[in-house]
Amino acid sequence: MSGGREQVLAAIRRSLGRGALGADARAALDARRGATDSEPLLPKLPKGTPAQVFRTGLEKVSGTMSELTALEEVPGAVAGYLAGHGLAPETAVAPSLEALDWAGAGIAPSVGPTRGGDFAGVSQAWRGVAESGSLVLLSGPENPTSLNFLPDHHIVVLRAQDLVSHLEQAWAALRERGEKGWPRTVNVITGPSRTADIELTIQLGAHGPRSLHVLLVD
């Protein structure tokens, strides 16, 4: 389809009234920090600790959160969540969390991606964003994307040290991953699935999870 490429690019250049840019001009564009070549404009956050600001944002979009003091507490917290919602002690679990003692908490985990048969899924966030109460999850063998979308209940483990103020900090960290670069998908998730497509009435659980619960681990 390179014919298509040249055709579109030529039409663009005609409209811009110039030919293709020279190597110097292109290098100058590549050297810019984004379109405006300046630091991103980051909104000021409300007062409070990052965890407090994050919680406010999350709760505003109908997410819930509990705070734990160690990763070992995760299976117990998940068991409590499932029981509290009248669910059987079964859940799909991301391979990144496989090593935890699930059996000890009375949970039968199914490790790996899901095809929709699981009521709950537990995955691990790569970063949490205080500004909007959002979770950033990276796809990969350790964290299958299907866990984020197919189960009715999505439980996400977030380590307190992975909490950043703005999305831009997450992007800076992503650049530092170096050659691994961008995974196939980065999911920025802000609350459970919702729709307002029928009479503008907000309804949770349109296609994705009906509820989103964060376990913040200090």
Binding site: G57, S132, W182, V188, I189, T190, G208
Partner: peptide, 8 residues
């Protein structure tokens, strides 16, 4: 403030 799913 943020739409629920922003996917890259």
């Amino acid at each position: 403030d943020m739409t629920t799913y922003t996917t890259f």
